[in-house]
Design a binder for these strands. Structure first.
Length: 800
RNA sequence: GCGGAUGUGGCGGAAUUGGCAGACGCGCCGGAUUUAGGUUCCGGUGGGAACACCGUGCAGGUUCAACUCCUGUCAUCCGCACCA
């Protein structure tokens, strides 16, 4: 058969669409399978081969499950709010709505050309007001449940663009847009209290099936640590300095304390502090440091001693000096630490530089060279002296602290509350009103969606205000509570908002009474399998698990974890082995590949390139190899004759059915395809096969190269869709060879092979091995010490 | 610095519980078809003159047997970055 992929592919794409065969039915009697891929951001650059890889994995799994009789939900949508679209709008003057719609149309067309079996009836767009209505609704629920608060914080601000930037947009301390230096600016920030869910997010990991490295990254991101809060009295005032430590056992080794430059105690005791101007100068210096400098100067500790505030060690009433230094940050713990230079390297470096005492309290290491962080016998520690185990000395110390009321057990997380506003146009408006009398007032649910107003230009306002702040008709409103004049919040939500619950909307995308119908949620949730990139396993996944857990707590979803299973695909690199980028000119456009080789070849190649989870470079000649494979499959039509089973091929078929099925479930697509290639080679060696066997072959191939498979299926005289046909089954007995080749070793060295019946006894096998011409010279005249026999694998004769 | 991974032919990569290292594909070499190139088909392809021997980053170890397990070490990639 001539492999005219162009016409074959458009023909079957049309047939599938006309018959609407991939839409999920809300038929609760069938077993369901909800497979989810990360919906794309519809950028102007169009689809990337990376998208194809990200979707092809679960595409194959979904197609197989469908053929196995599952009710499959494999949806697609667009995460369309975001900065690039807004920047395009600023540059070109084209409305972001139009830019978004154009890009979505382009993506849709490209995705359809690849032949993905998405359910196109459930497409969602996060910028659609019928979608963001519910994003706002969830925000209000959180607000009304006390999970939203407002605080001032330092943000990255570009004085040239007059824009507040996210950390991602200000890497290296430079503005991503104009490359000028970023400064830190104090601003009102909306926060979501995600830290309240830190423990739940951590515990939830015990009951989900995520790849181990994904779990690990989430654990690290949450960053739970246990330790103690301890209060140190200040000599000169009626004040306590509260610190957090994971090593309360070393409290007797404290020789100084350090507080963050922004610590409020400095402002409170300006009058008491003798060297306040020196401290102010240091603070200013720190504020000027860009993030880049801060991270670069890790080794060199700076700081200033506070004259006029002295701390007292609550255990032995020793007076200890207090310093400010930017190696302590306000954002973690209490912004103040007790420094134990003998047993903490950072404190050690600081003490060396400032000539502060170092008191060893744990035996071990060489304190003259560096801090000792290991375990050992406690010394110089009063009631802890003689303890040899870190855990028990910590426990004893905690007991003591609580008994005396000077401290208590505590827990800290690296994870911070989620800064939830952006000074941008193209995002969900935050549905809050600022009333002079009633303060922050949530919009009533009946007023949702709070739509984005029309603006003339999308440039941010003076001082980094949102473009919405310029629209008086939007800003000025009545307070929903007291009816008095009020002003709307003009910031919008971050891009992460829409993607934090999209998997719920797919379940019931057109519902206007609720974000989704509870019965449907009950049937479809949780997502059975979620695949995406490693770059999203921390932020996006943590955020969405948080939202889901919140919705569970208020009774809106039936399960407390959204994703039962999570895997990740590796990147596709350029042909030169580095990340694809426009500037390097190594970007591969999937359109070009589809045009030149066909969608089936593209899909097959991307899954054949290597291990699905690892990065692999693009290779044009390997693409051709996959095309050749499909052409050779098409040519099978010429040698397929008759019905039934070819005895010489039966075993190979059963083995391949088994292997392909198992490999798909394990995301080992490369070896699944290799197995089909091997079978193809076997068929050509044999010279013929039956039409039934050809149909079985293309059924296995269907998830990978569905267009060609359907075409051959039709050529064989079938009128149904192969995509909906039954997945082939294998007979375990028929996967076993009658004859097996066994390796024969002498003293562990491979010396030859032996072909024997699979069910041969050990004795017979060893006997046959000894008699081999290739073996005899090695064992003649020697004493046989040991004979090892692994049935079906090898015989090893050990001689002396 | 911490955490996680990964090192296998010329290349991408295979290898169940430790059991014939290099499946499958690319590339390359030779041959056939072709006026020629391309395509297609057949054969070969870790190194090595070799049925010896050597080969899975490097150095050791355990074992009848190690890509696989253990100890040390080097390199690369990714994530977090002064987290007290």
């Amino acid at each position: 058969m001539k492999y005219d992929f162009g016409s074959i592919e458009s023909k079957w794409q049309k047939k599938w669409a006309d018959a609407d065969i991939f839409s999920a039915k809300d038929d609760f009697s069938k077993p369901k399978f909800y497979s989810l891929i990360e919906f794309p951001y519809p950028s102007g650059a169009g689809l990337h081969v990376g998208h194809i890889k990200a979707y092809s994995g679960l595409e194959v799994v979904s197609r197989k499950r469908r053929m196995q009789g599952y009710n499959v939900l494999f949806p697609i949508g667009f995460d369309a709010f975001g900065l690039p679209t807004e920047n395009t709008a600023i540059k070109t003057g084209v409305h972001p709505r139009k830019v978004t719609d154009d890009n979505i149309a382009k993506f849709t067309d490209q995705l359809k050309r690849v032949g993905f079996s998405f359910d196109w009836n459930r497409v969602i767009d996060t910028t659609d007001e019928n979608y963001y209505k519910w994003t706002q609704w969830i925000f209000l629920e959180m607000f009304n449940h006390g999970l939203v608060f407002r605080d001032t914080a330092l943000v990255n601000y570009c004085p040239s663009c007059k824009v507040v930037l996210s950390n991602e947009d200000s890497q290296g301390g430079k503005c991503d847009i104009c490359h000028s230096d970023i400064i830190q600016k104090s601003k009102d920030v909306w926060y979501l209290r995600i830290t309240k869910y830190a423990d739940k997010l951590l515990e939830g990991l015990n009951k989900v099936d995520y790849l181990p490295n994904i779990k690990m990254q989430q654990e690290n991101w949450i960053g739970k640590s246990t330790g103690a809060f301890v209060n140190f009295k200040i000599k000169e005032a009626d004040e306590e300095l509260r610190i957090y430590t994971t090593r309360p056992d070393t409290l007797f080794g404290v020789t100084f304390m350090v507080i963050a430059p922004e610590h409020p105690i400095i402002e409170k005791y300006r009058a008491t502090i003798k060297n306040i101007s020196e401290l102010d100068a240091y603070k200013e210096e720190c504020a000027k440091k860009t993030e880049f400098e801060r991270t670069q100067l890790v080794k060199d500790k700076t700081g200033v001693k506070i004259e006029g505030l002295t701390a007292i060690n609550p255990l032995n009433n020793k007076e200890i000096p207090v310093y400010i230094s930017d190696y302590v940050m306000m954002g973690y713990g209490t912004g103040a630490i007790m420094a134990v230079p003998a047993h903490d390297q950072r404190d050690y470096e600081f003490a060396k530089k400032f000539g502060i005492d170092i008191i060893q309290v744990i035996k071990g290491g060489d304190i003259s060279k560096e801090a000792y962080t290991g375990d050992g016998e406690m010394i110089n520690s009063d009631f802890l002296n003689g303890y040899t185990n870190k855990k028990s000395s910590i426990e004893r110390m905690l007991e003591y602290l609580e008994e005396k009321g000077i401290g208590e057990k505590g827990v800290q997380y690296k994870m911070k509350d989620w800064a939830f506003n952006r000074q941008r146009y193209w995002g969900e408006p935050i549905p809050i009103v600022h009333c002079p009398k009633c303060k922050m007032v949530p919009l009533p649910y009946s007023e949702l969606p709070l739509k984005l107003p029309e603006v003339k230009n999308y440039e941010p306002g003076e001082g980094g205000e949102s473009p919405l702040a310029k629209i008086d008709s939007f800003v000025n409103c009545k307070c929903p509570k007291c009816g008095g004049p009020a002003k709307r919040e003009t910031d919008t939500m971050p891009q992460w908002a829409g993607s934090s619950w999209y998997f719920l909307r797919y379940i019931d995308p057109k519902n206007d009474k609720a974000f989704a119908d509870p019965e449907k949620l009950k049937y479809w949730l949780p997502v059975d399998w979620y695949n995406g990139g490693m770059e999203h396993v921390t932020r996006h996944m943590i955020y969405s698990r948080f939202w889901h857990k919140f919705l569970y707590d208020i009774g809106k979803v039936p399960c407390d974890e959204p994703y039962a299973k999570r895997t990740a695909q590796g990147m596709i690199l350029g042909a030169n082995g580095v990340k694809m980028s426009k500037s390097l000119g190594n970007v591969v456009d999937p359109n070009d590949v589809v045009r030149e080789y066909g969608a089936d070849t593209l899909r097959t190649y991307i899954l054949f390139m290597g291990d699905y989870g690892s990065a692999a470079p693009w290779s044009e000649s390997s693409v051709k190899g996959c095309k050749r494979f499909l052409e050779r499959v098409a040519d099978l039509t010429a040698i397929a004759k008759g019905k039934g089973v070819t005895p010489a091929l039966e075993n190979s078929f059963h083995k391949t059915i088994k292997k392909v099925g198992e490999d798909i479930e394990a995301l080992k697509f490369n070896t699944a395809i290799a197995a089909m290639m091997t079978l193809l080679n076997t068929i050509y060696e044999h010279g013929s096969l039956t039409e039934d066997e050809l149909n079985t072959f293309i059924t296995l191939l269907c998830p990978f190269a569905p267009h060609l498979a359907e075409e051959i299926h039709e050529k064989l005289g079938y009128s149904d869709f192969l995509s909906l046909a039954k997945w082939p089954e294998y007979d375990e007995k028929k996967t076993i060879d009658d004859l097996v080749e066994v390796a024969v070793q002498v003293c562990g060295k491979f010396r030859g092979t032996l072909t024997v019946p699979a069910d041969i006894s050990k004795e017979e096998l060893i006997d046959a091995a000894r008699k081999l011409d290739r073996i005899r010279p090695y064992i003649e005249g020697k004493t046989i010490v040991k004979e090892i026999c692994v049935p079906g694998k090898l015989v090893n004769i050990v001689v002396k």
